[in-house]
Nucleic acid binder design. Sequence first.
DNA 1: CGAGAACCTAGACATTCGTACAGGTCGTAG
DNA 2: CTACGACCTGTACGAATGTCTAGGTTCTCG
Lengths: 213, 213
Amino acid sequence: MSEPKRIRIVAVDDHEVVRSGLRFSLMAFDDLELVGEAADGEEALRVCSEVQPDVVLMDMMMPRMGGAEATEALLRNHPEMKVIALTSFEEGTRVQEALQAGAIGYLLKDVGADELVRAIRAAHAGRATLSPEAARALAKAAIEPPELGQDLTKREREVLALLVEGKGNSEIAEVLNISHHTVRFHVSTILSKLNAANRAEAAALAVKHHLLD
Amino acid sequence: MSEPKRIRIVAVDDHEVVRSGLRFSLMAFDDLELVGEAADGEEALRVCSEVQPDVVLMDMMMPRMGGAEATEALLRNHPEMKVIALTSFEEGTRVQEALQAGAIGYLLKDVGADELVRAIRAAHAGRATLSPEAARALAKAAIEPPELGQDLTKREREVLALLVEGKGNSEIAEVLNISHHTVRFHVSTILSKLNAANRAEAAALAVKHHLLD
DNA sequence: CGAGAACCTAGACATTCGTACAGGTCGTAG
DNA sequence: CTACGACCTGTACGAATGTCTAGGTTCTCG
């Protein structure tokens, strides 16, 4: 054993090509050691439990279990691990999701190896790293929008989802096992919360702003 | 000079991490040589003109100039080059776009190095390679495709656009300077063409399928 | 020229929507 | 405990919606 403290890293990404890139990029640095890889969130949990890394590089867009969910689950069991979100796009919502899940860093995949390594060392030391794009997106998200539709209740979302599918009030009532009067009440509330003139606009807004899933 | 004919490759991707992955993955094969990299479509055109590669690995989702557009432009000037589309997701439309642009292969980024190399050699020999997912998506697209909403007339699209904004029939009538009876007629036609139960679903479908600009 | 497509208009009808008002239960945070 | 928010039910009423039928114009293409 040469150095007493190499930073142990796990790379999580569903794309083999990306994992290769990380693998070889990190190889050039003596103080870093890639000790595991995973292709989705579930696998990440298994691998991390086993190899106990210091830092986890986590892709956000993955099948099965998404990056945010995986990060949250991982940190619940291993609060000492540092997660850096690595992603392709700089949507404001994604950034917030990741940080809220407990990621200490957020980088775009177009970072160079050196910058990535800096972020890894920083994370290991407990310092956060945000890519400029992510920081900008975060700032923008913090300023402008009460983010349309964030104040919808769970029930209202259910109603909205059915509404988007073209269901009428009575159909919605049937599916949810409630009175059609109640449905109308919910729809009315939804319209005012979304500032929509009618259900057509509400449906359009729901899709446009990804209010469902 | 060892072998007379190494396959000359250019990698195009906006993510540095991915390019590293490709760079190191290809390094292990004697008959392959990575002779250039580019981070977007425009750069790809420049680089390829300069280094004259045999095969181009082209990401489809890039800023400035998308992969499909770049592929088309590239092949117009260099019809002898073989382009393999490399992408993150298997949307049917993307696959069609890529192939229509002239790509000879379509792979997901989760392919392993060996599979990638097989595809490169195949492309160089003029043989196509489709990932199973891509092939499936293509087949599905070929079967289903009346491509929802393609048969809408110009007027119907105008009506639909206003409908999405939450306008009522009379409002739409006013904007378009036609009778509200006519609007209702158009809406009725739209609903049947989109197979929607009501204007709410029609609005949702319009947004979901990008039926408007 | 004739056929067809796209577009427009209109009346009648049942249905659905959206709102306003007036209450009720339930669980939880103060 | 009390207040509050989310959720539920109901009545009543005017307005909007969707379908039907039955025409009309304008333009293009064979």
